[in-house]
């Protein structure tokens, strides 16, 4: 399996570590509110089981140590898109 790293080009999956759905970037910010318990529960445990394009987090541990958001088709195993997780995170308004 080969992941086309946005900065380094195609690299063997042997260099990477898998984490899980890219939803893990959307960590709730409302920790002070009581209602956030449900949000954190959803964030931690609830996942779509997608037959199709799945956005997921991979870490280039034996490479440039960047976290990547990889869009992979779970049926064909085709990798459709690879982004830097940092960019994705900033893109949804995360910062400090």
């Amino acid at each position: 399996m080969i992941i086309n790293h946005p900065l380094l080009g195609p690299r063997d999956s042997e260099e990477f570590v898998y984490l899980g759905a890219a939803d893990l970037i959307n960590r709730p910010n409302n920790w002070e509110q009581d209602a956030s318990a449900e949000d954190f529960y959803q964030y931690q445990y609830i996942r779509e089981n997608i037959a199709g394009d799945h956005r997921e987090l991979w870490y280039h541990e034996q490479g440039d140590q960047s976290w990547l958001v990889v869009t992979r088709n779970t049926l064909s195993h085709e990798i459709i898109n690879v982004e830097l997780a940092q960019d994705v995170s900033r893109g949804i308004g995360r910062g400090k």
């Binding site: 984490l19 893990l24 970037i25 960590r27 987090l57 870490y59 140590q65 960047s66 976290w67 830097l84 997780a85 940092q86 994705v88 995170s89 900033r90 995360r94 910062g95 400090k96």
Partner: peptide
């Protein structure tokens, strides 16, 4: 690295 890059990148 996850916490930094994915959660608080700035």
């Amino acid at each position: 690295q996850f916490c930094h890059q994915c959660l608080w990148p700035d």
